[in-house]
């Protein structure tokens, strides 16, 4: 075996092993509940925004994640570059990932691409809008407004339903 093939084999093994360990955390039922309720449908240029909701906050939780589906019916890629809201001192587009059992959350500095002709879903455990420095609690059943900033199409303000704390199985809210 020459040096190059040894190197190739070693690399392949390492890459394979890394994927094997990363793969087994990518499971679980991501999205059981939210499809029924938020039916708001906002057309913004070639973009269609649906199912916008923000997750109700727990007592003293100063941040909130918000989610929606963005369809790009146009022929040009679009980029979601920012988000803002009156109720939050800070809003950002984030990505969450599980890496070997560790939850990682990062700001998408360049924004989130919405490719032409495709639909991108922001959902728990993945892409989300992150509101920080909240001025108010997110109370289930209420509605809040936030403004999404798109690179080409510009800003659009849309309403977000505040949905339950138990995101996965819907109707288990406990009151508080």
């Amino acid at each position: 075996m020459n040096v190059f093939s040894l190197f190739a084999v070693a690399t392949a093994l390492i890459v394979g092993a890394s994927f094997a360990s990363a793969g087994d955390v990518q499971h679980g039922n991501k999205h059981d509940a939210h499809d029924e309720t938020a039916m708001d449908h906002v057309q913004h240029g070639d973009l269609v925004l649906t199912g916008a909701y923000v997750r109700a906050t727990l007592p003293n939780q100063p941040v909130a994640g918000a989610f929606l589906t963005i369809e790009n019916t146009g022929t040009e890629d679009e980029m979601l570059v920012g988000v803002s809201a009156d109720f939050a001192g800070r809003g950002e587009v984030h990505e969450m990932k599980m890496v070997d059992d560790t939850m990682q959350m990062r700001k998408l500095d360049a924004g989130l691409v919405i490719p032409a002709g495709e639909t991108v879903t922001l959902e728990p455990g993945g892409y989300h809008l992150m509101f920080m420095k909240l001025d108010q609690a997110m109370v289930e059943g209420e509605t809040v407004n936030a403004t999404l900033e798109f690179e080409n199409t510009g800003p659009v303000t849309t309403s977000f339903n505040v949905e339950g704390k138990v995101a996965k199985r819907g109707e288990h809210d406990h009151g508080s």
Binding site: M96, M132, R169
Partner: peptide, 20 residues
Amino acid sequence: FTHCPDVCPTTLGDILTWQE
């Protein structure tokens, strides 16, 4: 941690459903 948008509230909610 409380500045956690998703995982921590989800886990607390899961525990509630397990208790039920």
